[in-house]
Nucleic acid binder design. Structure first.
Length: 589
RNA sequence: GGGGUUGUAGUUCAACUGGUUAGAGCACCGGCCUGUCACGCCGGAAGUUGCGAGUUCGAGUCUCGUCAAUCCCGCCA
């Protein structure tokens, strides 16, 4: 490489006019006009137009005429003001150009599978295979930069607040509760396996016991579960833990940290403190524990109305411990039968048996269940929902969580479809007072809603053994624009209490000792009161970048079948490796 | 584990109700062009219609299976 850059393409401007500069970069586009050739040269910092005139030596001209997109070149030349009428206002460096005196071809490029300057010329499938090329695109360059800034802002903010970043091990051991673990066989300990951490949960609690009263780590976590747009098998968390604190301290630090991140990465000022609602209220009003509060449409209890109707579905639901809830859709009376059928189909995917509806038009109830509504019940419904002309009402009659989850999903769907969401808005809130346990129908037992180290509310300990449903916890989630982006809790810090939780979860004393003995022992040596939170960093960056999936903010993401199309992982390993590890593959069909 | 959508040239898409030699833009190759910036103009090459069966006189199109991508449900302490 003879011509080594002393300037950056995107940084040049009028002040450089007259200077002789050396540039290195990729060819974004080239325009050969016969006697003159223009090339838009690209580096990380932007584009600049480079001009090749006809008076260059023949050997250079021959190569220049054959330049292709994505060739890597070096040029030396003078920065000049473009002639009158030839400036480009759409280009940051559009007032100038570099007139080439010396040229060096650094590396040719084959035609790329898709055009870097026009990302949509490749499907996501294709771009994932050539991710290193996708990362050249303006969009991903921008997203990865936002991610970098968010990382720096986080570290700076927390370090300034006395938090220490401490690394915890990746090779740990498998735990009974929670997601499936990724496991790693140990060659030195034949027949034994490490597990990769789903989170550094127990380690950060141990660090509190060690006296590092403010810990954080930006850390990879691993979960072997099925993927989604917002879920990857390996993902990044901002993991935090503090001692001698309560919920308010953690929430305050979190709010200030998020405020700093939003401000420093995308220049957006968000308002703190964030509103708080309880889990129950979130479910009752929005049908979700991660409500999108950027639009209204509140779910209402319409049992008084339901009792007055002679609609059998309502009555049998109420007799079977069910609830009746309704969602009012403004102007929804205009929906066609097909529109409503689609909503019903959506409802069914969330476990609804059906979705009752009625339209309120010209002061009367029409279609759907209108024939079951008489004057008296109609009046109650109009009053409860403050119905006006052209409203549509959707009803769910089922178990509490089914009714609300279904209406919540319909609400979210309609919010998007009807354009009720202002995408420039950032709406953050805390959801608090979660139940400690949820019932797992399949396994016929209670399991932790968050994790087994979460402290119940002080006044709820009394119900732990006899009425676990009634126990709420000191857990809190942070929700932004309807996405859970963080969650944490005040932890248990007494051995005796932790044992009671394990026992309530049906984890035997023996198993608790085997899996978590180290933590239970540690609790005996002066464990301070502590708590923490973890943020889904990928989701946070996706919100910062305005992206719908976290794949767009991860440099090398995996597909929804947990594969890398680029490197072809996972892959088989050879016999020798298997033998060394004492493993044999048997796949049942 | 289940459901929806998709798979056609390097690539993005098209191809009617199952019917001639599967078309177009961009990219690529060749030629022309001194102020372009999605440069333009002329010409060219480019296909195992994801894969495998089946139905049919005939399948890109219909059926079944399979693989892959994606969205969702379950799952995700």
């Amino acid at each position: 490489m003879k011509i080594k850059r002393n300037q950056l393409c995107g940084n040049l401007n009028k002040d450089n006019i007259g200077e002789t500069v050396k540039l290195n970069g990729w060819i974004n586009t080239r325009r050969v006009l016969g006697g003159i050739t223009f090339v838009d040269l690209r580096d990380r910092y932007g584009l600049v137009q480079v001009r090749f005139d006809n008076d260059l030596p023949e050997n250079i001209l021959t190569i220049v005429k054959q330049l292709n997109m994505e060739d890597v070149i070096a040029v030396e030349g003078e920065v000049q003001h473009r002639p009158e009428g030839s400036t480009n206002k759409n280009m940051l460096t559009g007032e100038i150009e570099v007139v080439v005196k010396e040229f060096e071809m650094l590396n040719k490029s084959k035609p790329t599978p898709f055009e870097i300057k026009k990302r949509e010329t490749g499907s996501e499938n294709l771009r994932l295979k050539y991710r290193y090329l996708d990362l050249r695109t303006e969009k991903l360059q921008k997203n990865i930069l936002i991610r970098h800034k968010a990382l720096q802002a986080t570290r700076e903010f927390l370090s300034n607040d006395k938090f220490m970043e401490i690394e915890t091990p990746f090779f740990i051991k498998s735990t009974p509760e929670g997601a499936r673990d990724f496991v790693v066989p140990s060659r030195v300990n034949l027949g034994k396996f490490y597990a990769l951490p789903q989170s550094p949960q127990t380690f950060k609690q141990l660090l509190m016991i060690s006296g590092f009263d403010k810990y954080f780590q930006i850390v990879k976590c691993f979960r072997d579960e099925d993927l989604r747009a917002d879920r990857q098998p390996e993902f990044t968390q901002i993991d935090m833990e503090m001692s001698f604190i309560d919920e308010n301290d953690i929430q305050k630090v979190s709010e200030n940290m998020l405020k700093t991140i939003f401000s420093k990465t995308i220049g957006k000022e968000i308002v703190t403190p964030f509103p708080k609602i309880t889990y129950e209220e979130a479910m009752e009003k929005y049908g979700s524990d991660a409500p999108d509060t950027r639009f209204e449409m509140i779910i209402e209890n319409v049992e008084d109305f339901a009792k007055l109707t002679n609609f059998k579905v309502f009555h049998s639901a109420l007799e079977n411990d069910g609830v009746i809830r309704a969602l009012k859709v403004k102007n929804g009376a205009e929906f066609s039968r097909k529109n409503i059928d689609e909503l019903t189909e959506l409802a069914k995917t969330y476990g609804a048996k059906g979705l009752a509806f009625v339209k309120y038009k010209e002061n009367e109830f029409q279609s759907g269940i209108s024939k079951f509504i008489d004057e008296e019940s109609g009046k109650v419904l109009i009053e409860k929902l403050k119905l006006i002309d052209n409203d549509l009402v959707l009803f769910m009659a089922d178990k509490w969580n089914v009714s609300l989850t279904v209406l919540g999903s319909v609400r979210k769907h309609l919010g998007k479809k009807m354009g009720l969401i202002d995408n420039s808005e950032i709406s953050a809130l805390w959801v608090t007072n979660f139940p400690l346990f949820e019932y797992n129908e399949e396994e016929n037992r209670y399991q932790s809603m968050h994790h087994p180290f979460t402290s119940p509310n002080e006044e709820d300990w009394q119900y732990l053994e006899n009425n676990p449903k009634k126990v709420n916890s000191r857990a809190y989630d942070i929700v932004i624009n309807g996405q859970e982006i963080g969650g944490g809790s005040i932890r248990i810090h007494s051995q005796e209490k932790q044992k009671r939780i394990f026992s309530a979860l049906n984890i035997s004393e023996e198993e608790a000792k085997q899996k978590f003995g180290f933590l239970l022992n540690a609790f005996e040596y002066g464990a301070p009161p502590h708590g923490g939170i973890a943020f889904g960093f990928d989701r946070l960056v996706a919100i910062l970048a305005g992206e719908p999936t976290i794949r767009e903010v991860i440099a090398f993401p995996k597909t929804t079948t947990a594969q890398s199309l680029m490197i072809g992982s996972p892959d088989i390993i050879d016999e020798k490796q298997l033998k060394e590890l004492g493993l044999k593959i048997e796949i049942e069909k």
